[in-house]
Amino acid sequence: MKLEEIKNPDLKNYINLVYMQGENKNQEAIDKLEQEIKEYINEYPLIISIEDNEAVKIPYGNDGEYVVPVFTDEREYTLGMQYFSLNVMDENKDYIIEKLDYLKKLKEDPNFLGYLVNISSASYIINTSLL
C-alpha cells in the first residue's frame, strides 16, 4: 500500500464526534464512539512514523511516559513531519503503513500511554484501553 492511498475519513469523523460529545458531557455517546474507534483501528492501517525500525516515541509527562504519533493520511503525515521539524524532531523521516496491532508489544510497556493521532492538527490520543 502506498502513502497516498491511505485515507481514514471515518476515523477523523469519530474523533470529531468524541470532541463534540465531550463538550456536551455525553459519556454514553463517547463510550459508543470509542468502541467504534477500537473496531476501526483494528481493521484499517494508519501511517506510523519510525526511526531505526522502531516507532517514534514522544515524551508525554515527566515519568518516562510517552505516546506514539500516527497519521490518518498523507497530508497529515506531511504536516506532522513539519511539526516535528519545528520541535527539533526532524530526523524522523521514515514511515510504515500498518494496522496498530503491528505494535502490540508497546501495550505491554507501562510508560506507553497510547497513539497520538495527527499531532499537527486536532490531536486525539487513542489510549491503550482501546487497543
Rank of each mutant, 00 (worst) to 15 (best):
L86Y: 02
N13V: 15
E5Q: 08
P9M: 07
D31S: 12
M81K: 05
N111H: 01
S49H: 04
I15N: 10
L11N: 07
M89C: 11
E74Y: 12
I125K: 03
D10C: 05
Y83A: 08
N62E: 12
E91H: 07
N53R: 00
V117G: 05
L11P: 12
K2L: 01
Q35F: 07
L113Q: 00
L3A: 12
I30P: 09
K107C: 00
L86G: 04
K38A: 11
K104R: 01
A29D: 15
V56W: 06
L116N: 11
R75Y: 08
G64V: 06
A122I: 06
L46W: 12
E74R: 13
E23K: 14
D94H: 05
I47P: 12
E91S: 10
E91I: 10
V67D: 08
I15V: 09
E5D: 00
E5P: 01
T128A: 05
Q82G: 04
K12R: 15
I119T: 06
E34H: 02
S49Q: 02
D52E: 06
E51R: 11
Q27M: 11
E34F: 07
I96S: 03
I15T: 11
T72F: 02
I47Y: 09
L3F: 12
E91V: 15
I30H: 02
Y60F: 11
E91L: 11
N16K: 15
N53A: 01
E43D: 14
F84T: 04
